[in-house]
Design a binder for these strands. Structure first.
Lengths: 139, 139
DNA sequence: TGCAGTTTTTAGAATTATTCTAAACTCCTT
DNA sequence: AAGGAGTTTAGAATAATTCTAAAAACTGCA
């Protein structure tokens, strides 16, 4: 019987394979950091610092590659809130963000309760991809 | 009698002074490019290319400085839509954005018609600064 | 107008975030 | 176990932006 939590398994090799990615040691190590617990927001540098502290360090280039691959595979979504810094969010469901300036903290909030009415139709020849709502707050 | 258009004057030195900025030649040149016609979205590189083609070229460092000063003075607002690239918008009123991927085109739409309901309250100790809505569309 | 004093501009170096390169390594299949 | 494709890596390269410190320009005042 597989060990599970809230619908997603901790068998990272299988999850990676299911996403079309080879379960290498470094990808599994990063997946564990990202997906073993609650939803997270990370930057490449931040995740690199974390994994560097572990017994299975991973190069910064690989952290970047892996975050991009995870995003392309739909395991993460990229959030752009501040110039010159990308956040990756393990929550890939519909939701929006609080961004606390100037610290750069990012928090999710579910989109269930939020209704956006009156959006204009997409320009001709384009289709809607996503609607991001960023609530910027200051201390 | 001053030459005016739609409520804002073309007397850029005065407008800069009113915003607390010395009307230097380069600031006036950039203000003219930015504010003489319709609302615009520019990047530092793009504006630099434009002004370089004029009879009063301005260094890239000054373009960056000036865009930041104009933003701090409330003459522009900065829009962050894609990782590693800042857009500056001459429309400082309430409005939101279409972002066309993958070209990186940015279009305004007014926020009058848009209603956002059900936003959660800001985390304790913070006050609302702004709500950005980015409608991402693809060709 | 001429001058001092402060603010700006500038070219180029520095910084930061990210991607690229090509050689070494690992995973998977056989 | 071996071969080949896919990965990882350190370090170089790139891209966007900021910094530095010397030169130039704006401003107020004589």
């Amino acid at each position: 019987m597989a060990l599970t939590m809230s619908g997603t398994s901790l068998d990272f090799p299988s999850r990676l394979r299911a996403a079309g990615l080879r379960p290498t040691r470094q990808r599994v190590a990063l997946a564990r950091l990202l997906f073993a617990g609650n939803h997270r927001h990370v930057t490449a540098e931040g995740l690199h610092a974390e994994v560097k502290a572990s017994r299975m360090p991973v190069s910064l280039a690989t952290v970047y590659n892996t975050l991009n691959q995870f995003r392309d595979a739909g395991l993460l979504c990229e959030v752009v809130v501040a110039p010159g810094r990308s956040y990756f969010d393990t929550n890939t469901g519909h939701h929006h963000h609080f961004f606390v300036e100037p610290d750069g903290e990012l928090h999710d909030f579910p989109s269930d309760k939020v209704t956006i009415a009156g959006l204009p139709v997409p320009p001709k020849g384009t289709r809607l991809a996503r609607v991001d709502v960023i609530v910027r707050v200051r201390r």
